[in-house]
Design a binder for these strands. Sequence first.
DNA 1: AAATTTATTTTAAAGATCAAATTAAATCAA
DNA 2: TTGATTTAATTTGATCTTTAAAATAAATTT
Lengths: 409, 409
Amino acid sequence: MGQFSDKKGGLATQRHTGRRQVLSVIRDAGQIARIDIADKISGSPATVTAITAELLAEGLIEEHTPETPPSGSPRGRPRVALKIRGAAHMLAGIKVAAHAISVCFLDFEGQEAGQFEAEMPKPALSAPELVAFLDETLRKACEKIGVPLARLSGVGLGVAGIIDAPRGLVYWSPILTARNVPLRDLLAARLPMPVFIDNDANLVAKAEQLFGEGKGVRDFIVVTIEQGVGMGIVIDNRIYRGTRGCGAEFGHTKVQLDGALCRCGQRGCLEAYVADYALLREAGTLNLPDSPTAHARLDTLFQAAKDGDEAAGLIFHRASRMFALGLANIINIFDPALIILSGERMKFDYFYAQEVLDAVKSSVLQIDAPLPDIRIHKWGDLMWAKGAAAYAMEEVSDMSVQEMGKDVG
Amino acid sequence: MGQFSDKKGGLATQRHTGRRQVLSVIRDAGQIARIDIADKISGSPATVTAITAELLAEGLIEEHTPETPPSGSPRGRPRVALKIRGAAHMLAGIKVAAHAISVCFLDFEGQEAGQFEAEMPKPALSAPELVAFLDETLRKACEKIGVPLARLSGVGLGVAGIIDAPRGLVYWSPILTARNVPLRDLLAARLPMPVFIDNDANLVAKAEQLFGEGKGVRDFIVVTIEQGVGMGIVIDNRIYRGTRGCGAEFGHTKVQLDGALCRCGQRGCLEAYVADYALLREAGTLNLPDSPTAHARLDTLFQAAKDGDEAAGLIFHRASRMFALGLANIINIFDPALIILSGERMKFDYFYAQEVLDAVKSSVLQIDAPLPDIRIHKWGDLMWAKGAAAYAMEEVSDMSVQEMGKDVG
DNA sequence: AAATTTATTTTAAAGATCAAATTAAATCAA
DNA sequence: TTGATTTAATTTGATCTTTAAAATAAATTT
């Protein structure tokens, strides 16, 4: 029989791992023939036939026959491509930020199936308020997009703050007035499908891994700058979370002894130099035209710096040097193959201006081997929600793969 | 048959993983009965019987019958304990430092089988000189301890500096005059057994994992302070090495923008505040009695600080604050369960004085979950060599486990 | 000495994979 | 159009591995 028993956190059965591998290879490839799958997993065609037959029967994958037979095809029996069957599952991803909430629907293939956005009623809510609001928003989104709630196989939830993903716990979040909220279970109690929750930066990492620059990269790190500074660590294709589930707090890495005051109450955090509020705090002492929103004020400040305002320039200059320092530390510690600077705020090019990259490079240990690749990926707000949905997709995929022989009765 | 084929870096066979697990459980436990192994690996007693029979036949393990049958034993057939057979393999570990070289012999059970120390001929050697010296020293050690060289199944080598362990390459080391030396292969060419090489801090981590505070801990971090500052990262029971094999350069983490000059040529490295040379550099401006060796001068400085010398005290004070800052960063990034401060230099208690630990705690993100455990482990120079031998032991163990059915032909 | 208890081994059955043989589905060549 | 050729996928039979259940072993208890 399979390899050892499957109870508890025990070992996977033999077939189980095979199924997981095959599904993963198909997902990676988009579409791929059985014989190529066999090649990729170093298994025999016979095994692949057996496994894919199961997956086909369960509706997780499907054969993909192109309408127009490709001309100039080689002799021999043509390979028939297999692909994930999008209709197998529908997933929702929700990203909650201070002012807005966004929902994204993804089918099992990773195709976007709709999106929905709404305002937050107030910047910080109590736990019951937030749960009710999430529930309500998800139902509204389902209605608007035309997907019955019951159709969803899973919901991924991304929240800014300090999250223990495995336990579904929000230690602290700017959008919650309470601490230590078991948000996952609270929401799951109101919904008929499993709920998964994670730190928003980890979800960006997930999105990058599945749809973005991190595709096919085994170890990489994602850094985001928005309200705060976030980091997602991917090691060995999996998100690294630390023991308490709350590692990767790059933003609260100290870059200066007794430095600037951070909103976390400590001093010298990177965030206290580069996050929105840190820049605006310093801009307060400047004589800039007033703007209604923080976003607009930030734009004004950036424009002033670009136009040669020396004080404004100095604000960005210091921020970027601190950012470079923090980034160099990450490289020295992890030696990753790739660092992705992700998020909308990357439009402030001071963060990735050549001089910053140069500063990073000169602060990294010098050896005769290529430096890690640093890539910028600006993409919109939707990405966060998409990452949340992708997170749910992965979890549900894992669950599906394990459900074998269940319908034998 | 087993799970997929075994070619290249492909997947392990089914039995292969079983063997590896059983051996690992036995090693962890010291001695353990078959039925308990079955329990631990969530397998059946029958399987354990099969696997242990193989391992017994190959001489990798042995039954351990206590001379005195334990009184007050329960009814029923008594369980017979299995243990690693020490005589199965003999391993050597070598640690090369600036002034001394130490060799440690370990049997397959992890029992120390002898040690040997020698002076380095000069502080920095050329690659051929070092290889010849290592070869010579190992042979001398064998002679002294009475182990024929051919008896060794593997040699582990620990070198300070920047090492790419998988490739066996020394990018840079204070003991080598050249850069990018393929030291592993150079030494292996002169010896009849496999050679493994790693950064010395990783070897301390390995020693802690097998014999020290890291026993049974899945994720932990080891920090050492000696000539430089080193770090070993254990994630998921394995040493994390980064893509170029040279991650975990904690010592060159920047703790101050444009800070103190480091021997690596950059500014603001942690090492430039807390390593031996950094302290002595500052001590130079003090009026302290001269001492012949660096070691002695450091002792003098430390004593002066303890005796109330304000300037000396300030040197240590700053070093310890910087150290706390660096440590807090590690915790914020990794959220490890355990941090081990390891090495002889821990005798300077400023590094782990309560106030440093307090500073770390107050610089770490505050959430309602227990802080990582920080433990001090002072142990002698031999540990490094022991870690090197342990590294070789693990590698050889893995090789042994894979050699199955080889003697059937 | 028999009954009981627990550990280990043996046995027989069931999964899972793979090599080899077979079948399927195309192109190529006449 | 037909048969040869080629490549993909499936089927078959053998082998390996694990496991449940039965048998055996080795102790204690009665």
